[in-house]
């Protein structure tokens, strides 16, 4: 065997499955995660090195900070409006406690983070929803942060890139949550009417009031492979209609087929594509540079 081939030959089965940036741990005790798609166990280090994607292509969920690391150019993210937090407008039983424990466990203050960043040198406004904060549900703070981001983007003539994850409106805030759908839509509309670009990436899961507002209002709508995207919950539909749901119902692929997303983009190709789309919508002499 030639020396170079010898050097690069796969040491084990995992290496054969794909290239990984980090060394694969041979420690047997390393924690693993079982892929719900291919049912193989994948060591966490390998999963993280591969952007939380199984070699079979299954996209695991991703928290906002991990997403920022692969998406934004290093050191360019400046968080905005982190001071905006949800109150408990209805005094809903158990909600205040739930917020506190969620803040501790997720180490985030709310279900979305907003800010400015550069993606391959393209400056933009960015929001990322947090699956590990009450499944990205939209209460007043989420609505307010996103609204402010669009107002900020309008003022500075920046494009907006948004990653959505949400179980829908946060019911513990009642009508206050519902009204955030109208509020954010109004802000998106103003941004849009000024000729500015808004790109959404739908990730697993994007449902309910977020699907029925800013998630579906992008000029270009991308989705991650296999992501659940819909308005009504699948179980609710099954119970209401008493019909078996078609295979692949409410997946990103289903939406593509029915004309509601522009493209399905795996995580590994997102950064370059988003940068290119931003660049195609950059203003001459504008802030995008």
């Amino acid at each position: 065997m030639p020396f170079l081939e010898f050097l690069f030959q796969p040491k084990n089965e995992l290496e054969q499955g794909g290239r990984s940036a980090a060394p694969v741990q041979s420690d047997e005790r390393e924690p693993e995660k079982t892929c719900p798609n291919c049912h193989n166990a994948i060591p966490l280090s390998r999963l993280w090195a591969g952007l939380n994607v199984c070699p079979c292509g299954y996209h695991f969920r991703m928290g906002v900070r991990a997403r920022l690391r692969y998406l934004a150019d290093k050191g360019t993210f400046r968080e905005l409006f982190s001071e905006v937090r949800s109150g408990d407008p209805l005094g809903f039983p158990g909600y205040a406690d739930k917020l506190e424990t969620t803040r501790t466990s997720s180490r985030e203050e709310e279900a979305v983070i907003c800010g400015t960043a550069e993606i391959q040198w393209q400056k933009c406004c960015l929001f990322l929803m947090e699956p590990y904060f009450m499944m990205g549900s939209m209460g007043t703070a989420v609505g307010e942060r996103i609204t402010r981001l669009f107002e900020y983007a309008l003022e500075h003539r920046l494009s907006v890139v948004g990653f959505t994850v949400s179980g829908g409106a946060r019911m513990q805030e009642g009508l206050y949550s519902l009204m955030q759908m109208a509020k954010t839509s109004g802000a998106v509309k103003r941004h849009s009417d000024a000729g500015l670009f808004y790109l959404t990436v739908l990730t697993d899961p994007t449902t309910g009031g977020v699907t029925a507002s800013f998630a579906m209002e992008g000029d270009i709508i991308l989705a991650e492979p296999g992501a659940t995207v819909g308005f009504a919950g699948a179980r609710v539909i099954e119970q209401t209609t008493r019909k078996a749901l078609p295979k692949g119902f409410q997946t990103a692929e289903f939406l593509l087929e029915h004309g509601f997303v522009d493209a399905i983009v795996p995580r590994s190709r997102q950064k370059a594509l988003i940068a290119r789309l931003l660049q195609m919508h950059a203003f001459e002499g504008g802030a995008s540079a």
Partner: peptide, 26 residues
């Protein structure tokens, strides 16, 4: 509430509502 069914999802219930919110605002 908005109709809850397979067809409604296939024809973009969420998108239809989102568009109304946006357009009514303006």
């Amino acid at each position: 509430g908005a109709y809850c069914g397979i067809g409604a999802e296939e024809r973009g219930q969420g998108q239809a509502i989102a568009e109304n919110l946006m357009e009514m605002m303006a």
